[in-house]
Simulated scan of single mutants.
Amino acid sequence: MDPTQDSTDAAYLSMLTRTIPGVGNTPYVPTASKPTSSISHITNKNTATNDLTAHSTHAIAILEHAQQDALFISEGEERFQTVDIFIPSNQSHAPSSLPSTTTTTVTTSSNTAARPLPSESDLLSILKEAQLLPNESDIACEQTTDLHIILNQSNPGSDKIQSALLDLFHYDPTASPTQHPTVALYRVILPSSPTRVHLWILGWVDQHLMGFHTISIET
């Protein structure tokens, strides 16, 4: 455990990377190759192989390719992790029941109907139901469709991250953010560790919220 982390934050990070023990705490060592051991995948316990369509399986492959050797630079360096949160249609936060006040304007490449992105409160509920957030009160969440901090060229691999967001969500960084709200950045701040801001970059692929997770160190 990083000596600067408290026990709650360390437990949260361990939970996020629980499917591949130790990956989240492995220091970055630049190499010429792209080792598969660098792939860290966040999912929820409800996700099963038979929940994946051909489109969502292809989407995971795009995300995993993009996050290899990609880093987010803040006051530290953090890897990206791929995210796949399956939400069955009978759950309270399924796509059909999300608020209609936040709507998308284009469809994904699978030709499914455009779905509203989760609001801040919806995302916190989704993450808690998926057991991807600790049992804490007063967790803050901020949502934006401006991804410039993620796609900043100072972040190694930002071009591949941008390409993946374009392929999956038609995200165009040169367009007005309100024109293509098919993907959003959510800043989740735990009261127990306010200097480690969890960044979730998410959009819908079928019944899955997919995208990336990383951490911004903000002292």
Rank of each mutant, 00 (worst) to 15 (best):
I85V: 14
T57S: 08
T47Q: 09
C141P: 03
T53M: 12
I62V: 12
I85Y: 14
T104A: 15
D84V: 10
D146N: 03
T36S: 13
D138P: 05
N135V: 04
E120L: 13
Q179W: 01
V29L: 09
T19D: 06
T53C: 08
T102M: 08
T49R: 03
P30R: 15
T82S: 15
P3H: 15
A11T: 10
T174C: 06
T49V: 07
S96I: 02
E120K: 15
S125C: 07
P181F: 08
P88K: 10
K128I: 13
I217G: 01
L190V: 07
S192A: 14
C141R: 05
V205E: 09
T43I: 14
N50K: 15
F86C: 03
Y28M: 12
I150N: 03
L151G: 02
I149F: 00
P116D: 01
H58A: 10
R196N: 02
T103L: 01
T19E: 06
S192W: 05
H55K: 09
D146K: 01
S154T: 13
F169H: 12
V205M: 11
I42N: 00
G76R: 02
T112Q: 14
I20N: 01
R18N: 11
M15K: 08
T49D: 03
H41P: 00
S92P: 04
Q143T: 10
T53I: 06
H148F: 14
K45A: 12
T108Y: 13
S125G: 07
T178Y: 02
P134L: 05
A94W: 04
T4P: 08
A114N: 11
E218Q: 13
